[in-house]
């Protein structure tokens, strides 16, 4: 009897395995039309300020894949938190597993961390959400909440000490007695007519998404670094969040094998 149950369970899980596949997302960080190079390269924003970037990182979460007919697959929330850092190559390619077979034409996600997880108990904050671990520089302790997007660097125009600028954007709306700005924004990225086919685990499609860090500074509000060299919890943070919600764009779709090394090579990541 036991044996039968065992076989039955195997069969069920095998069937499940065949119904799902994986995809990878590669984030390509740029400043306008140029690649983002930390520390060494000089850029210009729309206001004409010259700047260098020393740090650029952000959370994405609550990922959804959208089918042609508009229906969506919502990733299990616990598996949908990712911290992407320019300084860490590995973090710029993420893999989403157990995606149901099908054809998808767009992806959407939240830029930052949803309000529920910002208010959740400590037991639900593992991995990239660990405030003593991976998230230690993406968490405000005195005003408890995650930083969603963080960019730092220097600019000759900056009026702050040592010409630095710091944009730390967070704030999830608050909880209980505490009401704050809500800088949670969403991004939806259309695959431009291409179709993402999730078939099996043999071939893993890779979506390349371009993240344009200059969009923090350019957009509905062109940021003058001299006027706003540091933006954290203040009202101006909403302007930057409004700007950066457009920083993601579709840059290509590749089908790759499960051989990770080969994939990395193909993406020029070695």
């Amino acid at each position: 009897m036991k044996k039968i149950i065992f076989i039955l369970l195997c069969a069920v899980s095998l069937a499940n395995a065949q119904k799902t596949g994986s995809i990878s997302i590669h984030f390509d960080h740029v400043i306008g039309n140029e690649p983002l190079v930390l520390n060494d390269k000089k850029y210009k924003n729309a206001d004409g300020d010259e700047f260098k970037v020393s740090l650029f990182q952000y959370f994405i979460s609550n990922i959804r894949l959208i089918r042609k007919d508009g229906s969506t697959y919502v990733m299990p929330q616990d598996q949908s938190y990712f911290l992407i850092r320019e300084s860490n190559k590995g973090s710029k390619t993420i893999t989403l597993a157990n995606i149901p077979k099908g054809k998808f034409t767009a992806i959407s996600f939240l830029i930052g961390i949803d309000s529920a997880r910002n208010a959740s108990e400590i037991g639900q904050r593992k991995g990239c959400l660990d405030v003593a671990g991976e998230a230690k520089d993406m968490y405000w302790a005195w005003n408890s909440g995650y930083i969603f997007v963080k960019m730092e660097g220097t600019s000759i125009q900056s009026t702050a000490k040592n010409n630095i600028f710091m944009y730390h954007i967070g704030l999830f709306g608050g909880i209980g007695n505490k009401k704050t700005l809500n800088n949670i924004r969403y991004a939806t990225i259309d695959f431009g007519g291409e179709t993402l086919r999730v078939k099996d685990n043999k071939f893993v499609p890779v979506i390349t998404i371009k993240t344009d860090a200059s969009r923090l500074l350019n957009g509905d509000t062109n940021v003058e670094i001299a006027k706003n060299p540091t933006v954290m919890g203040g009202p101006f943070s909403a302007k930057i969040a409004e700007n950066y919600k457009t920083m993601f764009s579709f840059a290509g779709l590749d089908k790759l094998t499960t051989d990770i090394d080969k994939n990395r090579k193909a993406l020029g990541m070695n």
Partner: peptide, 29 residues
Amino acid sequence: DGGVHDLDFFAVSPITNPVEMNESLANVL
């Protein structure tokens, strides 16, 4: 100022504040 909503998270603030304990949580662990 009510900046922390959950007792569990409060200690992170004095531990990491430069004018209080000036330590990183990771290093404490």
